[in-house]
Design a protein around this nucleic acid. Sequence first.
RNA 1: GUGAUUGUAGCUCAGUUGGUUAGAGCGCUGGUUUGUGGUUCCAGAGGCCGCGGGUUCGAAUCCCGUCUUUCACCCCA
Length: 446
Amino acid sequence: MKPSIPKGTRDFSPSQVIKRNYIFDTIRRVFVKYGYQPIETPAMENLSTLTGKYGDEGDKLLFKVLNNGEYLNKSDATAFAEKNSAKFTQSVSKRGMRYDLTVPFARYVVMNQNDINFPFKRYQIQPVWRADRPQKGRYQEFYQCDADVVGSDSLMLEAELAQIYDEVFSLLGVNVTIKINNRKVLFGMAEAAGVADNFMAMTTAIDKLDKIGMEGVTKELSARGLEDAAIEKIQEMLSVTTLEPLKELFKNSETGLKGIEELEEFHKYFDTKPAANKVEFDITLARGLSYYTGCIFEVKANDAVMGSIGGGGRYDDLTGNFGLKGVSGVGVSFGAARIFDVMEELNLFPENIAVQLKCLLVAFDQPSHQYAFSILNELRSAGISAELYPKPTKMNKQMKYANARAVPFVVVVGSEEMNSGNLSLKDMISGEQEKHTLPELIDKFK
RNA sequence: GUGAUUGUAGCUCAGUUGGUUAGAGCGCUGGUUUGUGGUUCCAGAGGCCGCGGGUUCGAAUCCCGUCUUUCACCCCA
């Protein structure tokens, strides 16, 4: 059979994993510095944990795991006859692949609430799965790197998370704009326009502003049943780029004013330290995930065409779904695959991270091969990443292998070297060769 | 889920209006050389032409289905 992998999934070669780990390590270091602790959760969750948390669209994108055993005995024959896939699926699948890291985290918090010391700051770097059609920068399996805090509603945490974004992306060398808005501001906008009932329709429409333009948004809003007068009011508010003018517009919306207050509070904390990247209020930022209730974030790369490479926000009642009320949470997520693509496109990976092997030993014959193995042991004992070609075959072949491995140095060992103890060190870039004793070599490689 | 698009050697791709044993470059293997690679020279291996069906004397080529690729929409990291 011809080997293949499922659509939307990828293999990662050594150099890709090394680059990806470079991103992960950078993110992890910053998370730890800000006091976040690691947890991991299973790839599979009970479907009941996942469904209903991401909206109808999200539910459709959940990967379901077929039950084991004689699952057809217990299946819903009526639903099958009616060709009701959703209902039938319920009867043959009780587990699903996790769709993000936030909902499993909320589940974890509720299950472990007695052992957790609140506020609880955790980070998590694991893959998630979505049954989406693959596209540019979209896969069915991808890594998320999340940091969340639960058990405090302090706006200081929003500021801290924005600082994490700023610090990670400046370490990686990616210029970004951190966009911030507040769901309460969006609700205030709906109230001010008199369309509070159509809040969700309004937010999904204006979220597309940068893509389809004001004209497209107008069309979309009127298609969703909004009155012309309301649309006009919304358009007026969408052109606002600062908080001040909104205060007058929101004078009858308690929620809207609260949103403005929260954003101001955020800035009181955040502005105490200069940031490397721009943090920008964007009233058109809406975000699809329906569990957000307060501040929302989105990060876009300035120098590459790519969807958002990070997002997050505050969710006041995510644990409420699992029976723990009154625990507020806020978190951010990094899209590792997209960050990878952006860094690749802009050539931002450091040159030397892919080269881990310091030197390759090659031997001419069997006695010198064994002697070279003892040299290899010495180098490794000194903490140097080294390798010996497994057989003393033709030099041509061994050198070709060295090239393919992109190793910077080759140590050539033959009877001459074995007798004198002076080893031939070949610089694979310049092609030059010189003799060194073992201690000299160790010194050079360190 | 909707609309397009792609599939031929390990990789990148040719393959004429349907016509005999399907080609190239790179890579790979062996030889040449031989105490030295990123530069030769010679030889060789490797293809259910994505998969299934159909039209035809004859299909890589035309038709249908299916899977896959890429892209846009929906949605989203």
